[in-house]
């Protein structure tokens, strides 16, 4: 059995390969990629907040930098990531408990449309405040 096992090609990146796959696979991969992005952001965010320990001097100087348009664009990306991952997560929770499973693709499209609209609204709010 051992020798046979070694002839099974590893497909570690199959989860990221959406070529020719159907909508459910795209939803799954989108959820994973957005999730990984948010984890990365979380730890960068926590590391940056370390500046708060330096009091107003350290923190308020840093704020001047992150209020620049470049960082505001990143804010919009973060908001879109949260909306995509969060709304898709609602679908996964509900269908994952066996509710509304046959309609999972309709759910996905509707929730992603909502994510798009809310991201656009958020972008307008971020840039006009």
């Amino acid at each position: 059995m051992q020798a046979e096992k070694s002839t099974r090609p590893r497909q570690v990146w199959q989860w990221a390969d959406v070529r020719r796959r159907k909508l459910g696979m795209w939803a799954y991969t989108l959820n994973r990629v957005s999730g990984l992005g948010l984890v990365l952001y979380l730890f960068i965010h926590l590391a940056v907040l370390r500046l708060l320990a330096g009091g107003p001097a350290a923190w308020d100087n840093f704020l001047a930098l992150v209020r620049s348009p470049l960082f505001l664009v990143l804010d919009v990306v973060l908001l879109a990531g949260l909306l995509i991952h969060g709304l898709n997560g609602i679908r996964l929770t509900i269908t994952g408990l066996g509710i509304g499973v046959p309609a999972h693709k309709t759910w996905f499209l509707a929730l992603m449309a909502a994510a798009l609209i809310l991201s656009a609204a958020g972008a307008i709010a971020i840039f006009t405040m």
Partner: peptide, 29 residues
């Protein structure tokens, strides 16, 4: 299972394994 539903999509006999997995989860929970 990560709910990609590729099993259900590709099944040539409409067995719907993805739906079966979700039904098992509902029963277990």
């Amino acid at each position: 299972c990560h709910s990609a539903f590729e099993c259900t999509e590709s099944c040539p006999q409409d067995v719907d394994p993805g739906g079966a997995i979700m039904s098992l989860r509902r029963e277990i929970v």
